[in-house]
Amino acid sequence: HNLTITQGKLFFHYNPKLCLSEIHKMEEVSGTKGRQERNDIALKTNGDQASCENELLKFSYIRTSFDKILLRWEPYWPPDFRDLLGFMLFYKEAPYQNVTEFDGQDACGSNSWTVVDIDPPLRSNDPKSQNHPGWLMRGLKPWTQYAIFVKTLVTFSDERRTYGAKSDIIYVQTDATNPSVPLDPISVSNSSSQIILKWKPPSDPNGNITHYLVFWERQAEDSELFELDYCLKGLKLPSRTWSPPFESEDSQKHNQSEYEDSAGECCSCPKTDSQILKELEESSFRKTFEDYLHNVVFVPRKTSSGTGAEDPRPSRKRRSLGDVGNVTVAVPTVAAFPNTSSTSVPTSPEEHRPFEKVVNKESLVISGLRHFTGYRIELQACNQDTPEERCSVAAYVSARTMPEAKADDIVGPVTHEIFENNVVHLMWQEPKEPNGLIVLYEVSYRRYGDEELHLCVSRKHFALERGCRLRGLSPGNYSVRIRATSLAGNGSWTEPTYFYVTDYLDVPSNIA
């Protein structure tokens, strides 16, 4: 807008934040220059609390790290170098490059900038070799853009010569660093050979998330399962459950009422301010606690030095998902009996873990797994792929695949051998790939016309006998059925096997 004052003059007093240069501009645009008398524009009460600059400061050096910015700028000295009290560095987070010096300023003089007072450097006698002032900004957020400017702080001049310097606002972004852990990993099994893994992005990506790394490792069953005799009275049979499938998407929606109208769909109840505040506090606490764990609990591995020492970490090797089922080394339970199943799973520490690289999504279907087997899954978020990966501390989750139908069934015939004193040795093959492992066998036998009897055969007993022995049988026709019990439950009964026990007292003698 054009402003013209045809008559009258300007009068400025007691404006401590208004620089004289701005008042002189007002004289020019209003056409009143030359009308004012000496005392109409006070030299001592206008701009006496402001830094009124008329020179431009330029930054000469900028260096960044993930949490620091090192700045240096060209030296500046007023005509009387004693008038320079120091520099004021202003900075704040700036997602967009549209910041002005006066953003967030209120009537009390406060604003949204963080201000650092910096002492002037030592003055050199040689004007050509003056030290460049600077400042190291610490405690910054990774991968965050900051708006920065600097200006001088000078003393009051009796001659009211307006001098000083100020830089333009520059924008500097800190470097990326390792992201925080992925949030809320959930693993479920939808079949006997697959596990579905879902997660949420890290709360602090500290860069642009480029991919996720998912490692999985087959877990050995508890050692007590191999040692305890679950045929003993009072000892509860062990059981394991597989990871249940995901709930429906509708039930997972946030901010939804727990109660549904019987007449149909209901609208979600909005969260109160107290609920939102509580969630923010919980989120802040979780982030602080995660940072504490990362800094205190997890110790970084030592990389190899120039002395030739090897990095103890196993090298990563990509495998196809079809090879995942046989990740671990199978060892027989008892070496003397080769027909026992290889369900003991000690994992070799030198073995390469299978892994998958996930790009542009937060889910993965891990296939080719062994049925009813526990897996430990390790999830890392990465925001750099080359020249070397920059990934987060791992988040861990466990899951067990679903049982395989008929995996616990005894394959092959049940054979028998009759000894003296009416002892019958029953023999059968253990299931080759049971659900988890076989903890015991149930032997059901009966003599024709009598009630059915049951015998429990422990895992250890089966390994020693290759089956079991029935003792003290009365003469007669017998039928026997056997079924295995694994961590997933009972298998199917075998087809009945028949044998006849004679009275050993009636056996004919070869003595003449």
Rank of each mutant, 00 (worst) to 15 (best):
E290Q: 14
S257F: 14
G476I: 00
C267V: 12
R400K: 05
F285V: 05
V424S: 01
E465L: 12
L237W: 14
G374C: 15
E465R: 04
W216Q: 08
V359P: 08
V329H: 03
A405H: 14
T415V: 15
Y396E: 03
S305Y: 09
G308W: 07
T241K: 09
L213T: 14
Y445D: 00
V397P: 09
G234D: 11
V331W: 14
I366G: 00
E417Q: 13
T340D: 14
S398M: 04
S367I: 10
R466S: 12
I377Q: 02
R370V: 10
N208R: 06
W242H: 12
S392L: 01
C391E: 07
H425S: 14
L505T: 06
S283P: 08
E389D: 10
T415S: 11
E495C: 06
D222E: 09
A335Q: 08
A263T: 08
V439Y: 14
Y498M: 10
T485D: 11
F372Y: 11
F337T: 13
A394N: 08
C269V: 07
L369A: 04
L437K: 07
P270M: 14
L277C: 01
S243Y: 06
T497S: 07
S262N: 06
L235G: 06
G264L: 14
A263Q: 08
T497E: 08
F355H: 12
E465A: 09
S251Q: 14
K233M: 14
H416Y: 15
V443C: 02
R318Q: 03
S304Y: 05
E351Y: 13
C267P: 07
F285T: 04
Q219K: 07
P434T: 06
I276E: 11
V296Y: 06
V214N: 01
R390W: 05
R400M: 07
R469N: 08
A484N: 00
S341H: 14
E404Q: 13
T340W: 14
N208S: 12
E350T: 12
V439C: 10
C391K: 02
A309N: 09
G234T: 08
V296Q: 08
E442I: 07
D385V: 08
E282S: 08
K271F: 11
P238R: 06
G264D: 15
T272L: 09
S248W: 04
I418D: 01
V501N: 07
K406Q: 12
R481P: 00
D273I: 13
G472W: 09
E442G: 07
A407H: 15
A220P: 13
E279H: 12
I438Y: 03
R318F: 14
H425E: 10
N208Y: 11
K302R: 10
S344I: 05
P300A: 12
D506T: 15
S304V: 08
T485M: 07
S342G: 05
L437T: 00
T415L: 13
H454A: 04
N422T: 10
T347F: 06
S348E: 12
T343G: 11
E224S: 08
